[in-house]
Design a protein around this nucleic acid. Structure first.
Lengths: 141, 141
DNA sequence: AAATTAATTTAGAATTATTCTAATTACACT
DNA sequence: AGTGTAATTAGAATAATTCTAAATTAATTT
């Protein structure tokens, strides 16, 4: 429940860049997300936070998540209208939701596929972000 | 506000296949979605419905949308956790959300891109659906 | 060190989209 | 015409998130 020196630096830099303060609540939540990369919801993060920081409030969890997204340290993951989930993997990747278990998996993708996708847009469409979600199941063998 | 004979047949067949009744509310909502393909929300559909069917309820709109999705006549479109939108385009395609106007555009995609995407999954991952969302803006020129 | 300021945290209320519930209505089939 | 099943309806309930206003914290100036 403690950021490594390397991440601590990344954390400080990212927040500073957005003129946000590196508070202990923000750091705590960031470290929780790095610690268990199972794409938790705000509520799950709230519950986990309470174990080691019993006074944190749900509103603070939401606030911190917002600032972490804003400063580019984590990203949101949405499937349909389910609760928003949070992911610290910043490489370009997609998500796979297993309909049986509810687990979400990161799917690394080459840059080439993002450029191939953009080729299908009219030229005046400027893309800022592409979200790719797989739905399916995982066969055991 | 009337289905063409061709769509009427598609509509009847699709509902029959799911053992659902082709009621006038369901038909009305389906025809509204076909008439104005601007990816309306349930609430927008409700408002539009009222113009020509003043007694329809919001619950019915939600119910009908659910059955239309279930029977494969329309699909849901979700950006982040915004209200679910509905789309009658059944060809494989993505969506582009313009952050300035809020408009959503269909982006036709070749099948090849879907198979290219699936190649990045572990072999035991079985895909049922892939959702692709672009975010950005449209440059006028 | 005390005072000032601005940002952050907090608890709880408010909001919003959607789902649920239970009663009514509509329709197909005896 | 009567019965049974599915669909519709109005309004209540739910759940995730955002808002509000007060309290706390941290940094800066006096």
């Amino acid at each position: 429940m403690q950021l490594s020196p390397a991440y601590k630096t990344i954390f400080n830099k990212a927040l500073e860049k957005s003129s946000l303060k590196p508070t202990k609540q923000r750091e705590h939540i960031f470290s929780l997300i790095l610690d268990k990369k199972d794409h938790p919801t705000a509520d799950e993060i709230f519950t986990r936070s309470r174990d080691t920081m019993p006074t944190i409030s749900l509103a603070t969890v939401y606030n911190c998540l917002e600032t972490l997204v804003e400063s580019g340290l984590i990203r949101q993951v949405n499937f349909e209208r389910e609760s928003t989930r949070y992911c610290p993997n910043l490489k370009p990747h997609a998500h796979f939701l297993c309909k049986n278990t509810g687990n979400i998996y990161d799917v690394d993708l080459p840059d080439s596929i993002f450029s191939a996708l953009k080729k299908n847009l009219p030229e005046n469409f400027q893309t800022e972000q592409i979200d790719i979600n797989f739905n399916g199941s995982i066969k055991k063998n």
